[in-house]
Amino acid sequence: MSKKHNNIDQGKREWAVEARGLVKMFGNHRAVDGVDLNVRAGSIYGVLGPNGAGKTTTIRMLATLLRADGGSAKIFGHDVVKESQIVRQLIGVTGQYASVDESLSATENLVIFSRLLGLGRAESKRKAEELLEEFGLTEAAKRPLKNFSGGMRRRLDLAASLIAQPPLIFLDEPTTGLDPRTRAQMWETIRRLVNTGSTVLLTTQYLEEADQLADRIAVIDRGRVVAEGTVDELKASVGTSSLHLSVQEAGDMAEARKIVEQVLQVQSSISSEAGKITAPMANADLVTDLLIALRGQGIGLSEMSVQKPTLDEVFLTITGHGVTDAEQTTAHKSKQSEEA
């Protein structure tokens, strides 16, 4: 009994975010269906899932932008509904769509947000200059945002979230739609942020991003958390890499798939449009056995590669169904072509 009490007490000072059974309904659709999240202060926490999984809705509820239909959430021990104004003093939110003022310049945006946060006139100007410098936007400071690139807009958006130096920052898909170089810059910025003592809760569609940044990950699908753990734990469940095979004769597909599953002892999947067999692979050594077995059956291969696991495979392994969202498939494809 006393031990349990102790735990609760400790928990109070440990968790930046505690969400219990969050529910949000849009009409009859349960966009978020009982989400639990625990984010340790000072860590980067990744929420991974396809479009429409409920990531943004969850973040909006935690950031006091949306009222939950069920469940509760606390930010540093403060209830998001009852103490919303306190919560707002502890968070910074960078939305999926840049939440900055299009018709104003970068400096004007930052000055207005600084003034709203209670900084004086001179102090706001200084803060704006400082942040623009940090985010490499000084040259563009006076230009209207209409001419900003996607990456510049995101950086300005993040800069705006950092004015008050909030201990918790929500980043909703911070790198979706950015080119690889800008994405790497963004990652660097996020890492430095955590070094100063912030907690970051980010959502992403890319396993690689979660892998690069997050200490812990929650995989979310159809409004539910379907897996939670450290990056290593999650990867172990998927296999460290994945095997992609395509056969010469379309008629051999079923047979080849059977052999793959037998030899690797995993579940495989077929992407129909490409006629490709995909399977998670924990042990690279097994590939030799697989190739021998395929040759033994006289199945000719047209292509074979070993790749890092993609979100599709994580999903297949965890949920038993692939990512169905059309947008997600294209995002995934463009990512693969980037890697190539």
């Binding site: 930046a16 930010i75 502890l90 130096q165 201990p167 430095r192 100063t196």
Partner: peptide
Amino acid sequence: MKTTSIKPGFGRQLKNSTSLGQT
């Protein structure tokens, strides 16, 4: 980025209301 560390989220004295002056 400045290396000044951020004040932790716990133990801050915060008010859940907005004063007329602030409004």
